[in-house]
């Protein structure tokens, strides 16, 4: 047995161990204060003032929630065994259309892009009124892909057209095979006539398909990143940043770059796609 002083001086872990020895049931659930009073009770010592009533409850049969008595209740929680019916549980209907004219183009990887589109009821009405939605009219519903890499502001025109892809009346999205990596693309959704007239219903954002090989550019420029308290500024880059291959004490020759490309090629082949392992394990 221990004295009152010894008990009071014990750590939570020591008290828990002692409570275990004493056969205090549910001791592992108890916080230090509770352990202390339980041990005091088991040793026939007076518990701290005000705790008398708790001794039996603590020492005999603590419910699983016993620990939570001592741990502050977080918020006014209406939680119970059965969840209550909540206004915020109304299922979302994932609407087919939001009633806007829109095409959104997303990059998936260097080989593929994805686009989805939406057309408002008003636009459909207008289009239907012109008769072109009738298959007999000879007009086809198409996605027109543009390579806008070399166009100011990415505005598509006849010269930027890559291809037209016919889409069915129920389709609302499409995966494009990217013609060339490292180029900028944009998509129009509309109707194409047999003689090549095009009516645009919506046009997408511009995306850049990523490069899938090392850059052709081997010229080096250097800059300085320095810490100005917590914020960084690029002061100094103006001077240092123009240093190109071989200048400014940085050995950067074409030969070195060639050596590197071999080195890189080796690493790339074993490289990025092993990341598959990363995702397969997550959950």
């Amino acid at each position: 047995m221990r004295t009152q002083e010894e008990l009071t001086a014990m750590s939570a872990a020591a008290l828990r161990e002692f409570a275990r020895e004493l056969g205090v049931r549910g001791y592992s659930r108890l916080r230090r204060e509770e352990l202390l009073s339980a041990c005091q009770a088991a040793c026939g010592l007076a518990a701290s003032a005000g705790d008398d009533g708790d001794d039996t409850a603590v020492a005999s049969a603590p419910a699983p929630a016993a620990a939570e008595v001592a741990w502050p209740e977080p918020i006014s929680s209406p939680a119970s065994a059965e969840p209550r019916v909540l206004a915020t549980d109304v299922p979302f209907m994932f609407p087919q259309s939001y009633g806007v004219d829109r095409v959104v183009l997303l990059v998936r990887d260097p080989q593929w892009m994805f686009c989805y589109w939406d057309v408002s009821a008003e636009t459909w009405e207008r289009v239907a009124g012109s008769g072109i939605t009738d298959p007999a009219s000879g007009w086809r519903r198409v996605l027109r892909l543009h390579d806008v890499s070399s166009v100011v502001a990415g505005e598509p025109c006849e010269a930027t057209r890559v291809c037209d892809i016919e889409v069915g009346p129920d389709a609302t999205d499409f995966y494009f095979q990217t013609p060339r990596p490292n180029r900028e693309y944009r998509v129009e959704f509309g109707y194409l006539s047999a003689v090549g007239e095009f009516i645009r219903l919506a046009v997408s954002n511009v995306v850049s398909a990523p490069r899938n090989a090392p850059s052709e550019q081997a010229d080096e420029a250097w800059g300085q990143l320095y810490d100005d308290a917590l914020r960084l500024s690029l002061a100094g880059v103006g001077e240092a940043g123009v240093a190109s291959a071989g200048a400014g004490g940085f050995p950067g020759s074409v030969d070195a770059a060639r050596g590197l490309s071999e080195f890189l090629a080796e690493r790339i082949s074993s490289g990025p796609f092993s990341a598959a392992m990363v995702v397969s394990n997550r959950y």
């Binding site: 997303l106 990059v107 990887d109 320095y226 880059v237």
Partner: peptide
């Protein structure tokens, strides 16, 4: 603090390295 200036390319560490 002195680093080479390189414009990084679109990528992720997910399956096949992009957004798939």
């Amino acid at each position: 603090p002195v680093l080479q200036k390189v414009q990084p390319e679109l990528s992720s560490w997910g399956y096949r390295g992009f957004a798939e």
